[in-house]
Amino acid sequence: MKKLNFTTPTAQKIYDDYFNRVTRCTRTLPLNDQLEIMMEVNSHIYEATQNTTPQTEVEVLVNALQNFGAPEEVLQPLVADKKVKQATRTFNPRHIIQALYLNISNGIGFVLVAILYLSITAFGILIIAKLIYPNHTGLFIGNGHLFAFGFISDLPNNAAELLGNWFIPVVAILIVIFYFLNTLLFRLLKRK
């Protein structure tokens, strides 16, 4: 991408600082998406500096950047949308977490996806806990009613574990179901 060159060092510094902020806002995106956004912002700033009344270079640039808005605010929805697209395409956990973080303010749907995703992670931890602490991990009942599913460090004397060796397969099935629901919900939200 051809960057803009200014004759005054102050204008050049303002421009470079602004583009560093744009880079920081978009760095979680794939390189082609980052470049696309940078080129579009660059093109807009260039056109804005060319179509203005004669002023000093610094004034022209500062006006153009102010009119465009702070990149952290105006580009956030664009970065969030592109991140959801990438997460849906790859279903890479890192991209999903980043997409959730960027979209968490966009509604209850993404909060639900985040909860489902946390549950999947918790179920994975439970499988490991069952292998390390088999007597303290499971579906426990005490006094005839259900009281815990997961890991308990201090087991009451009357507690009995119901699932035994079936605990790991049951949790694995829950992971598959939650993963399926999450994928479905994520795609539905993306389509919105």
Partner: peptide
């Protein structure tokens, strides 16, 4: 193109929008 579109919106309406919000 983006910048031209923003100017056109400004000419025809009284909407004051941060120009960057157009791109999302």
């Amino acid at each position: 193109y983006g910048y031209e579109l923003v100017q056109e919106i400004k000419i025809h309406t009284t909407l004051e929008v941060a120009e960057g919000t157009l791109y999302p």
